[in-house]
Design a binder for these strands. Structure first.
Lengths: 152, 152
DNA sequence: TCCAAACTTGGAATTATTTTCATTATGAAA
DNA sequence: TTTCATAATGAAAATAATTCCAAGTTTGGA
């Protein structure tokens, strides 16, 4: 069940952040709210350009960067290959499955994510990121099943 | 005071990991042990190619990737622009200063870094990463000094 | 010394992202 | 609605990081 935010609501959200609510921006924001799969710029482009053939990859990058600057999104640099984008809901960590490549949200309490500690070792904290790499639940299951059927 | 590990010692370290101790590999490992500044492949290349003019950037990447696979190093994907490499000493977190670009080691106790928890939400943990972004101690000081001299 | 396997090399290819700049859309004021 | 300055869009080119590839070189065991 996807949450379908009306474009009107998204419009006020952009205005509240001091951004001009253009059609392209609304669509990018809508996509990110509906698809919390930590997509790349390329993935967003592929989906949106189907409906909006004139949509340019440059606009996607422009939009994502301005959203980042205004704090609407956060960037996930977990793979080292590309930047992935996450609509800012509540603070959370991430898990990258090295088998299937999925990035999964991890909710855990950490003294830094709630924003109470603003300084560490004298440095001013502005963002907190935490992530794990390993094998996800689903891939572990598949692995176990395969072993069984192979009689290993 | 840089720790200068003899190449002989590094050699046994590589052999212990099942890697052929070639000159290039020894030099990359030596560089990483001496320069814990989280360098990029490019930075390592620049330094080493001064002394070894035939050194290829591909060799740097090959070497870093095989070191990663063997667990000699860990990769830091904090900037989103490039991968930085860290010789594996004790587990720690990182702080990226958005002013000067430095990556600073942060030692903090976290229930996940010590390797006691091996599973989270059903997913098998193989790596734990934590990082902060913000303004480092030194840049904060400089900022304060500048404000003072400007009579702001 | 010989040999196969492993490693290195440099150029080309690939991929992600940014920059450039001309065109177009936007919204406030006339 | 018209005007106009400003900001956003889009296509192409530029840049930067990383990988691929094929040929040559090194390595260490037999």
């Amino acid at each position: 069940m996807k949450i379908i935010p009306s474009l009107e609501k998204l419009k006020t959200e952009l205005i509240a952040r001091g951004l001009k609510p253009t059609f392209q921006r609304l669509k990018v924001l809508e996509y990110l709210k509906q698809n919390k799969t930590h997509p790349t710029a390329e993935i967003i482009y592929e989906h949106l350009s189907r409906k909006i053939p004139t949509m340019s990859i440059t606009t996607i990058y422009n939009t994502l960067n301005i959203f980042l600057k205004k704090g609407l999104l956060s960037a996930i640099t977990i793979t080292g290959k590309e930047i992935r984008y996450d609509y800012n809901s509540s603070p959370h960590h991430h898990f990258l499955c090295t088998h299937c490549g999925r990035i999964i949200d991890i909710n855990l309490t950490c003294p830094y994510t709630d924003g109470k500690k603003k300084v560490i070792a004298g440095h001013r904290i502005e963002e907190v990121h935490g992530y794990f790499k390993g094998i996800c639940k689903d891939c572990l299951k598949k692995e176990a099943k395969q072993k069984k059927s192979n009689n290993v």
